Simulated scan of single mutants.
Amino acid sequence: MSNYSSDPKRRVGHEKSLHAILGEGTVADILLWRNKNLSTAILIGFTVIWFLFEVMEYNFVTLFCHVTMAVMLVVFAWSNGAIIVDRNPPDLRGLTIPESSLRWLLTKINRFLLRFYDVASGKDLKTFFLAIAFLWIFSGIGNNFSSLNLLYIGFLCLATLPALYERYQGEVDYLASIGNQDMEKLYKKFDAKVLNKIPRGPVKERKRF
C-alpha cells in the first residue's frame, strides 16, 4: 500500500483547491490548462518570442517596430474595410486593459513588498535564511544562463507546474512533507549550533506610564 494519497482532491494544509488559490479567474484557467486553446496560444506566443530573440538574435527595438507596424496595418485595413463592406469597425474597448486588472496587479505588488519587508527584517529567521540561500543559488544559475533564457524557463515552469501539481497532488504533497521534515531537522541543528550562540544584548523593559 502506498504511503501517500493519490486523490487529486487532496489538500495541503488548507481546504481550498489550487484553482481557488489562484483566484478562480482567467489566470487560474490558463495556468491549470482549463482553457487549453488560450493556454496553448500563450505558450506558442512566448516560445516564438524566445526563438526570435535567443535563436534568431532579433533586436528588441527592431522587433517592436515591426510588430507595431504590422498591428497598425491590420487595424487600418480592418477599420477601412469594415466601412466598405458595411460592417462596424473594431471596438476600442476590446483593445484596452481593464482597470480591474491593473488594480489586481498593484495589489499583488503591494503584498509582495510587505512580505519582502517582513522577511528582510528578520522576523522569521528560518524564512530569512531560506530566502538568502535561494537568492544565492539563483544568482549562480544566472551566471550560466542569459536573462531571456531564465525568463523563458520561468514561464515554462509557471505554465506547466501548477497543472502537473493539480494532477499529481498526492504524490507531490508526500514528497514535500518529507523534504519539509528534513529541512526542519537541518534548521534545528543550525539554530542550536549557530543562532543560539550569537550574543544578544539584554532586552530593556519598557517604562509604564
Rank of each mutant, 00 (worst) to 15 (best):
I30D: 01
A176C: 11
K108H: 14
A192Y: 13
I42N: 00
L156V: 06
Y4F: 15
D118P: 05
K197F: 08
M69V: 08
T62L: 09
Y117V: 15
E205N: 12
D191Q: 12
P8N: 03
L105V: 07
V12Y: 09
A176V: 12
V27I: 11
P90S: 03
V194G: 04
I49F: 04
Y187F: 14
E205D: 13
K123L: 09
L43H: 02
A82M: 10
S5N: 07
M1H: 14
G142S: 13
Y168Q: 06
L150Y: 01
T107R: 13
S79I: 09
A159N: 05
V74T: 14
N35F: 01
G45P: 00
Q169R: 11
T26E: 11
R103I: 10
G142L: 02
I137A: 12
K207T: 08
G142M: 04
W33E: 00
L18F: 02
F128W: 06
F60M: 11
V61F: 05
E184H: 06
G140R: 08
T127Q: 14
L130A: 14
R87H: 10
L156Y: 05
K9S: 14
S2W: 13
L92F: 09
F138E: 15
V119L: 02
Y168G: 01
N88L: 06
L161I: 15
S39A: 07
R200G: 04
N144F: 14
C157K: 09
G45A: 06
S2V: 14
R111P: 04
L175A: 14
V71M: 14
K189T: 10
